[in-house]
Amino acid sequence: MNIFIAGIGPGMGSAIAVNLKNQGHNIFLCSRGEHVIKLAEELKCNYARCDIKDYNSLEIAINRAYNVLGGLDAVINVSGNYFSQEPVESYDVKEFVDALENNAITFFNIIKASLNYLKESRGTAIGFSAAENVYLNSNPGYAAGKGAVYFMTKYLAHSLIQYGIRVNSIAPGFIDKENNPNSGMPGAIGRYPPDGVLDAINMLLHNNMITGEVIRVAGGHDIDVGSGL
């Protein structure tokens, strides 16, 4: 498959890119940070540096990916961040807007910019929301942004099914970004390795009967709404 991956950072984004490249997929990376340069060199793949919140810049990157890869079968938006545990009374309005935009507008932008190509391939789009244990241990802006991804997933899947385009999202719990040892067993306290998320992405890429779903990968911590940390 030809896959465009946006929001490449040293954690989840990199893990996804490495996993899909190792499976033999053709990938194109996109991020505003410098980490994408090093990762693209390591994986021997093409990349673009742009702010995914800027639609025009993203559209240029998507067009380049389509031409370089010779088509586009899937787009994955890992963009997010702005996670913190600031209480409402101390949370700044600008912080709220920044977190909302970085988590929500990026998902809309990537689907809008790639829409014609996904129509052509009857492709798929995958976004990132968050599981309840993350929402409830976060801040208003982060929760609003991830909540927007949840409902956009439902709306976009409904709107785009007429073109054969599938839209789904992953809602992870707390993911280990440092590759520390962790059993990964349900209910275990602490952060989880990215393996479960990678498995969910692989399923969504290849199962043509799944659309409009937000797949939770939270290790069971959503059951009692504990943080897992």
Rank of each mutant, 00 (worst) to 15 (best):
I3N: 00
A6W: 03
A6E: 00
I8N: 04
G9Q: 02
G9P: 01
G13E: 00
N19R: 14
L20D: 03
L20T: 01
N26P: 07
I27S: 07
F28S: 03
F28G: 02
S31R: 01
R32T: 08
G33R: 13
I37K: 10
K38N: 13
L39P: 08
L39S: 08
E42S: 11
C45R: 01
N46E: 15
N46Y: 12
Y47P: 12
A48Y: 14
R49E: 11
D54S: 11
S57V: 03
S57G: 13
A61M: 12
R64V: 06
Y66L: 12
L69K: 03
G71S: 09
L72H: 01
D73Y: 07
D73K: 04
V75K: 02
N77H: 00
N77S: 11
N81L: 12
S84Y: 05
P87N: 13
V93C: 12
V93A: 15
K94H: 10
F96D: 04
V97P: 00
A99M: 07
L100N: 05
E101A: 10
E101N: 14
I105F: 08
I105N: 06
T106C: 08
F107C: 06
F108Q: 08
N109W: 09
I111D: 01
A113R: 03
S114L: 05
S114Q: 02
Y117S: 09
Y117F: 12
E120S: 10
G123K: 01
T124Q: 09
I126W: 00
I126V: 10
I126N: 00
I126Y: 00
F128D: 00
F128L: 12
A130Y: 01
N133G: 05
L136G: 08
N137V: 06
S138F: 07
G141P: 07
A143F: 10
A144G: 11
G147V: 07
A148P: 04
V149E: 03
M152C: 06
M152L: 15
T153A: 04
Y155A: 15
Y155F: 11
L156R: 01
A157K: 09
H158T: 13
S159Y: 12
G164M: 05
I165C: 04
P172N: 02
P172L: 01
P172H: 00
G173K: 01
G173F: 03
I175D: 06
N179P: 02
N179C: 09
N179E: 13
N180C: 07
N182Y: 12
P186E: 09
G187S: 07
A188S: 15
G190I: 09
R191C: 06
P194Q: 08
G196H: 06
D199Y: 13
A200N: 03
A200L: 04
I201V: 15
L204T: 08
N208M: 11
M209E: 13
I210C: 10
T211K: 06
G212Y: 12
E213W: 03
A218K: 04
G219A: 11
I223M: 13
D224V: 14
D224K: 15
G226P: 03
G226D: 12
L229P: 05
